[in-house]
């Protein structure tokens, strides 16, 4: 059960990957929940950590910072971190922060699983 106010996040194993799927808005109040889930996912030491953002309607810089931190953590573990399913609004912050070229970004979860970024 998710504590009141916490961000619901599914963490699912897949072939050579862990899929992290947050549901809701990621801002200063909820980014610590995403950070904890990503740290747990990267610690599983699968080659790919896939963050499915299709259920995230809003993200601010604290959410972006959390993803940058997870990307660095994954790379230090010789893995990678792939984002997929970005809504227009979430995509917009990556563009404004000029981070859209830093991350591997796939259109859909299927594309991310298939390596189409």
């Amino acid at each position: 059960m998710t504590p009141e106010g916490a961000l619901p996040i599914d963490v699912e194993p897949a072939a050579e990957a862990v899929i992290v799927r947050p549901h809701g808005n990621v801002d200063l109040s909820t980014s610590p929940d995403l950070r904890a889930a990503l740290q747990e996912a990267v610690a599983r030491k699968q080659p790919h950590t896939i963050v499915d953002l299709s259920q995230v309607g809003y993200m601010d810089s604290s959410g972006v910072a959390t993803l940058v931190e997870a990307l660095q953590l994954a790379r230090r573990s010789n893995g990678d971190l792939i984002l997929c399913g970005l809504t227009d609004r979430v995509q917009s912050i990556f563009q404004i922060a000029r981070l859209d070229a830093i991350f591997q970004i796939a259109q859909t979860l299927e594309d991310a699983m298939g390596g189409d970024t």
Partner: peptide
């Protein structure tokens, strides 16, 4: 500096950009 890839410090840039 946006060329630095590190978490944090983006808020002022986002405000000025928007």
């Amino acid at each position: 500096d946006l060329d630095e890839i590190r978490p944090g410090g983006l808020g002022v840039h986002l405000i000025r950009e928007v």
